[in-house]
Amino acid sequence: MEAKAVREPLSRERALAAAVTLVDAEGLKALTMRRLAADLGVEAMSLYYHLPGKNGLLDGLADTVIDEITTAVAATAVPDADWRTSLRQRFLAAREVMLRHPWAPGLLGSRPTIPSGLFAYYDAILATLVGGGLSYRLAHRALHAFGSLALGFAQEVFSPAPAGGSMDVGATEADLSALAATLPHLTAMVEAEVHAVEDPTLGWCDSQVEFTFTVDLLLDGLARAQERQP
């Protein structure tokens, strides 16, 4: 007699892992409690025991992304690195997570609640800055300057797409071209800044090259500010 297959019990972790897989493949718009339940082979109501509705599900996804960033940072940390190298590596590790989950920047920017691991994540950044000799005042200003770069993405200046969506780059550039007479500098910038095909992007103006440039620019500026601090 064949042994009966044992179904893995439903858990919050299993549900969120399935949600990440679904959203990676089809985007946030495809994520519903009913669809997730079907993918897991369970009744939709059973999900509510672990995730209280769609908002609870989205909050859980945000928690999962922060946990993944924290794990990636720990795995790529450079032992005995100076503060600039350490933070640079941290931000680039977070960037790799965002590139795996391009829906994550929109999700993190839209949640009304703070993901559970976010305070600890930023506390570690502060520890790196202060441990490197920056005052708490300068470290505080650094956090403001870093913004979302610390989480691996740059907030777009022009981002007409809804949270979690993707922007039609061609349509946006066409709109600007049509306004060339009234927006000469924006049009010239778009024409000059053509992203290389191999340069990974998370948005119209959030490429890997631009992300790394901005991180390095801020770290260099902080190092100069450190020299001037009392």
Rank of each mutant, 00 (worst) to 15 (best):
74 A>W: 01
156 E>S: 06
85 T>S: 02
124 A>N: 13
93 A>Y: 05
134 L>N: 13
61 L>F: 04
151 L>E: 04
49 Y>D: 13
112 P>V: 10
82 D>C: 03
60 G>S: 12
104 A>E: 05
67 D>T: 15
131 G>E: 07
148 S>Q: 04
46 S>M: 12
53 G>Q: 01
92 L>Q: 09
62 A>Y: 06
150 A>S: 12
95 R>C: 04
126 L>Q: 14
53 G>F: 00
75 A>E: 14
70 T>A: 11
133 G>E: 07
142 A>L: 04
73 V>T: 12
135 S>R: 10
65 V>R: 04
49 Y>Q: 15
109 G>K: 07
66 I>N: 05
74 A>V: 06
103 W>I: 06
141 R>H: 14
101 H>T: 07
160 P>C: 00
144 H>T: 13
73 V>Q: 11
91 F>E: 04
80 D>W: 02
157 V>Q: 03
127 A>C: 07
119 F>A: 14
56 G>F: 00
47 L>C: 10
131 G>W: 13
112 P>K: 10
110 S>V: 02
126 L>D: 09
58 L>P: 02
89 Q>H: 08
147 G>K: 03
133 G>V: 15
124 A>I: 10
149 L>V: 03
112 P>C: 11
151 L>S: 02
93 A>S: 14
146 F>A: 01
93 A>C: 02
48 Y>I: 00
120 A>S: 14
138 L>T: 15
147 G>D: 05
140 H>C: 04
119 F>P: 01
99 L>C: 03
131 G>T: 12
60 G>V: 00
92 L>N: 07
49 Y>L: 15
50 H>R: 12
110 S>E: 12
110 S>A: 15
102 P>F: 08
136 Y>N: 06
64 T>H: 13
78 V>F: 07
96 E>G: 07
65 V>Y: 03
112 P>G: 10
61 L>V: 14
55 N>K: 15
155 Q>A: 04
157 V>H: 02
131 G>D: 08
49 Y>W: 09
146 F>C: 02
89 Q>V: 08
132 G>K: 08
81 A>M: 07
72 A>D: 10
156 E>W: 01
68 E>L: 09
113 T>A: 11
122 Y>N: 14
116 S>L: 12
86 S>G: 04
114 I>C: 09
48 Y>G: 00
103 W>S: 01
81 A>C: 06
143 L>Q: 13
122 Y>L: 05
144 H>E: 09
138 L>E: 13
64 T>E: 13
133 G>K: 09
107 L>M: 07
66 I>C: 04
51 L>C: 05
159 S>G: 09
127 A>F: 13
